[in-house]
């Protein structure tokens, strides 16, 4: 029985790895289009290894933003991995050096796949196999996308500039649909939470998203690239604190 659910977890995890890894082509192409070299692009995927941040950083570069705004937006987005790590630490029970390997694999998908499992042993299988699958695919496809974009020349001609907002939308949509489901932080208490509380969470998420989008849109014409995103996040969080 346990063997069977382990095998199922490996299968599911590798499936997610392949599906998500395909986005690496879009990242590789967008990054080279923004002006990064193939080596810099690959290093981002190998070392930063967190898609949302990578897309955010090259997006600001491509818009002509500053180092500070690119780094600021990227790291703020990467801060969610800290929360995932805190959630995963007791589940993975990693100690010593293994903690530093597990840390690199702590991203949206591996967290979601792990916390969705009831059995901690199966959750650990899901985490490591999702990490491995995505790491291999994401880096291979990043390289393919970067080399491909370099060979093609101007990526705007091929509509590749449209993949970046699409990638963000793909990351955002599940968060809005499921409230805090993907965060993996409230897995335990979600079951006990009444339905109206979930609806409330979803409403707050939608309002936050709409507010952030409006603020960013309003600031685009008057601020340097990268600033609208940071300002939108700051304003929305401030509003959340005041309430």
């Amino acid at each position: 029985m346990l063997e069977e659910s382990r095998r199922a977890a490996v299968r599911d995890s590798l499936g997610v790895g392949l599906a998500v890894g395909a986005y690496g082509v879009a990242f590789g192409a967008a990054s080279v289009a923004a002006g990064l070299s193939v080596l810099q692009t690959s290093l981002l995927s190998l070392l930063a290894f967190t898609g949302g941040t990578q897309f955010a950083v090259v997006g600001v570069v491509s818009g002509g933003g500053t180092l500070g705004t690119a780094l600021g937006g990227g790291l703020l987005l990467g801060a969610r991995n800290t929360l995932y790590a805190m959630r995963l630490a007791p589940l993975l029970r990693v100690r010593g050096l293994r903690r530093f390997v597990a840390a690199q694999g702590t991203i949206d998908e591996s967290t979601a796949m792990a916390v969705a499992r009831r059995d901690p042993a199966v959750a650990r299988v899901a985490f490591w196999w999702t990490f491995a699958g995505i790491y291999v695919c994401w880096n291979a496809t990043t390289l393919a996308g970067a080399v491909g974009a370099q060979a093609l020349g101007d990526p705007a001609k091929f509509g590749l500039d449209a993949v970046v907002p699409a990638a963000f939308l793909a990351l955002l949509a599940p968060r809005l649909r499921a409230g805090d489901e993907r965060e993996g932080t409230a897995e335990g208490d979600r079951r006990e939470r009444p339905h109206h509380a979930m609806r409330h969470t979803r409403r707050v998420s939608l309002r936050i998203a709409a507010g952030a989008a409006l603020i960013a849109l309003a600031l685009i014409p008057v601020t340097p690239p990268g600033v609208p995103v940071l300002a939108a996040a700051a304003a929305v969080l401030l509003a959340g604190r005041l309430r």
Partner: peptide
């Protein structure tokens, strides 16, 4: 330490931050 997560403000902050950032990034 895991108890850092217990503070509701911290949880709220880190749950809402990616939503705000991603929504803004979609339109920029």
């Amino acid at each position: 330490p895991a108890r850092f997560l217990d503070a509701p403000q911290v949880r709220r902050l880190v749950e809402l931050l990616p939503i705000a950032l991603l929504a803004a990034l979609v339109v920029v």
